[in-house]
């Protein structure tokens, strides 16, 4: 009798383990599958350069690019460039975000302010942000101010639009619950409108950060003495494609890192959301 139960138990445990390993294996497999094509392409690229099928002055081999990055890091200049670029994005992003939060909240909350401001803001939005470049340079010179300003303008719009639509999309039925409890306007904002529009705000932040990286490239291309964008220009002028590609890769890594940060923040702040991502 007791032997029988034992066998049963072993059997059960075995099955559970198998399922767990199986799902983890699936994850690894999915990840590995996505790596196959990039890896094959990299190898072909490397081999093609080695056998002089591709001109190394146009298409430097992947190993050359990696060497370049390591070389920059060893020289110590890399951190300066990365730091300056990161700093510009951060300051511009913060400035744009603060402006968007303040103006977006008021526009979303007060109907009359929307009627007052929105046409103007929409008009500004239809201007491609890069068109501001010459004007900002004229006004603020080629220093940090004009760069940060350009990034702030680029970051402003996606955040602003998402805040406004987030606030205006808050369910009237939830606001009525607050009214029943005699909430003041401030309480309504803090306890209902703010949390309810948070998802939309975070979406705005993520697309804002993306645009921030885009505009930092533009602002550094237009004249800088340091930064990853400056490395692009140097690479072009000194005819060293490996420097350009190295900078591009660094941009990609930085952009991905900030997006990942925000994505993690989003997942933490919004674990209450009833969506596909929160299902398991």
């Amino acid at each position: 009798m007791s032997v029988k139960t034992d066998v049963n138990e072993i059997f059960e445990v075995k099955e559970k383990k198998a399922i767990k390993v199986n799902s983890e294996w699936k994850k690894v497999k999915g990840f590995a599958l996505g790596l196959i094509i990039p890896a094959v392409l990299l190898i072909i690229w490397e081999v093609a350069v080695r056998f002089s099928l591709l001109d190394a002055y146009v298409f430097p081999a992947p190993t050359t690019i990696v060497q370049k990055i390591i070389e920059l890091a060893n020289e110590g200049t890399l951190w300066g460039h990365v730091g300056v670029t990161f700093y510009r994005v951060a300051v511009g992003f913060l400035a744009g975000m603060v402006a968007a939060v303040v103006i977006g909240s008021v526009v979303g909350y007060f109907k009359w302010f929307e009627q007052l401001m929105d046409p103007l803001i929409q008009a500004f939005r239809s201007i491609p942000s890069l068109a501001w470049v010459p004007l900002f340079i004229l006004w603020m010179g080629i220093g940090e101010a004009s760069k940060v300003m350009l990034i702030a303008v680029g970051v402003f719009f996606p955040i602003y639009l998402n805040i406004v639509s987030g606030i205006q999309g808050v369910d009237r039925k939830l606001i009525e619950v607050g009214k029943i409890h005699h909430f003041t306007a401030l309480q309504t904002v803090r306890r209902i409108i703010f949390p309810a529009s948070l998802p939309s705000f975070l979406v705005g932040l993520r697309s804002g950060v993306g645009l921030g990286w885009m505009f930092v490239v533009a602002s550094e291309l237009m004249g800088a003495s340091q930064g990853l964008g400056y490395l692009l220009v140097v690479g072009q002028n000194t005819y060293s494609p490996e420097l350009i590609i190295a900078s591009i890769i660094l941009f990609a890594l930085l952009g991905k890192a900030t997006d990942f940060l925000l994505k993690t923040l989003e997942a933490r702040a919004l674990k209450w959301q009833d969506n596909l991502q929160n299902q398991f």
Partner: peptide, 15 residues
């Protein structure tokens, strides 16, 4: 004074 139970639950999804 007044309490109300609505036709729908109207819970705050983030709480």
């Amino acid at each position: 004074p007044i309490g109300m139970i609505f036709q729908e639950p109207r819970l705050m999804p983030w709480l």
